[in-house]
Each structure stands twice: as structure tokens, then as C-alpha cells.
Amino acid sequence: MDDRLKETLSAMMDDEADELSVRRLLSHARQDEVRSQWQRWQQVRDLMHQGNLADDRVDVSAGVREALDGGFHKAPGPVASTRRGRERNWHWPAVAMVTLALVVGFGAGAGWESADTSASVANAGLPSEKAEGITSEAVGEPVQEVALQGLDEEQWEQVSRYLLEHAQHNSVGAGRGSVGYARLVSASGAGY
């Protein structure tokens, strides 16, 4: 685990990590390392958090950083400047997002398959008279694949919003009851 990932992890504890960084972290090959690091910090945080429950103004996250040797870089400035007043709920969204991702063992993007490896794609024999927009594609060729991990932050933001909106609609729409809920929570909780 390199420093950049640790920095992200640290930032997540403070609810300051941007989504792209979180995605990078979650696609890190050594998830066990990430998990154990997270758990160590979590323990420290819990200790400190219990000791300071009465005082909302204590910046627990900064304390955690110091306690853990202070070797981490400051999180991005603009976010840091908005921290006052956020301490109360800092532990909630970030921890929620990360534990959901780590405990369940998926990260955003981890479930994405290459679009052209599936039999369904290869067999899907769509008449492709409409496909001339993709220059290199001829009839029967697999659909061009886009690795979502390769998208930049803005692009990812865009795509994840579409995913969520579709899931939301689907939870209302398809009359599938719980499946719709599942798609929705899956889309919103995966650290997107």
C-alpha cells in the first residue's frame, strides 16, 4: 500500500476523500491490507471518539492522524476549510461508504466486466445497421468496451449519476419490488 492510498484511506475517515480516490483504493489489489489498515484506524478512532463524545468541536480525525504518526498529508484544502461544523457527522457517511465497500468486498468498478468477454455479447447478433457510428465496427463485432476505472473524475461522476437514476427508476418501475430496492442500494452504496 503506497502513501497515496493511505492518504485516501485517511481522508475517507474524515469524510474528505473524493470518489475517484476511493475507487482507486478499492480497486487496490491487496484488499486485506487496506482492510486491516482501516480496522486499526477504526479502533483508534473509536477509542478517541468514545472519549470525546460530549464535545462536538473536537476534531477527532486530526487526532487520529497525529496518533498514527502524523505522516499523512493534509487532505485537499477546500474541503478541509469546510470542516468546522461537520465533526458531528463526519463518521457517518464516510464510514458507511467504506465499510459497505470493504466488508462486502466490492469496490466500485470491481464488478465491471469486460463487455466483450461474455458469450451473450458475442452471440447477441444484432442487426447493426445503426452501428455505423462506431467507425471500426462491422456487423457481428463485439461492442466496444469502456473500462470505467479508466474514466476521470468528472466522467465517472456523470456515469454514476446515470446508474443511480436508472436504478431509482427501476425500483419504482419494473414492478420487481425488492429487486428494485436492491439495485438502488447497490448503485448508491458501492462507493460510487
Binding site: 463487455a115 466496444q144 468496451e145
Partner: peptide, 18 residues
Amino acid sequence: IMMPTGASRIGATTVYMK
């Protein structure tokens, strides 16, 4: 923003962008 052209899948869900 520029978006790439192509498809990504997660389970049964496909995202196609262009």
C-alpha cells in the same frame, strides 16, 4: 467533458456511452 464511446457492464446492467 468528453466521454469515451462504448459499453460497460455490471451484472445484467449495461452502460453504453457515446
